[in-house]
């Protein structure tokens, strides 16, 4: 599967989906005009890729500084996808947040609770 790389815009996050390297990242702000239009193709590609993996070491880095409630719905779906894939693969989910951002920290902890099989790390950045 080809790498997906999308530059961050004012309202949508930067995307780095390196399918060959098994490393994925979302970074920046997320309050796109049309959440389904932005995330739909990404979620579909990720799902197709995950279905084909077995015994892979997969890392997903969430490096968002802000997301709206419509994006939150997509994010929780991504967590679910990643945790399902962790049955047959080693999945690491890293949640980056600015150390003074209590809200993103709290949201990270809440989303992290959803993971039963994947490894979850909270990473504070100064």
């Amino acid at each position: 599967m080809d790498t997906i790389k999308i530059e961050a815009s004012e309202r949508s996050p930067g995307v780095d989906f390196d399918f060959a390297g098994n490393i994925f990242s979302l970074h920046g702000e997320s309050y796109p005009e049309d959440v389904s239009a932005f995330y739909g193709p990404l979620v579909k590609a990720l799902r197709e890729y995950l279905e084909q993996q077995n015994g892979a070491e997969i890392t997903f880095n969430f490096e968002l500084v802000y997301f709206n409630s419509s994006s939150a719905k997509v994010l929780i779906g991504l967590f679910d996808l990643l945790d399902s894939a962790a049955s047959d693969n080693q999945v690491v989910v890293n949640w980056y947040f600015e150390e003074d951002d209590d809200n993103m920290k709290e949201l990270g902890e809440e989303f992290g609770e959803e993971l039963e099989k994947a490894t979850f790390n909270m990473v504070a950045r100064g």
Binding site: Y31, Y66, N68, S69, D100, D101, N103
Partner: peptide, 13 residues
Amino acid sequence: KRVSRGVFSLFVE
């Protein structure tokens, strides 16, 4: 910053 982020978030929603 915490207040700003909160205000912006309320604004968007």
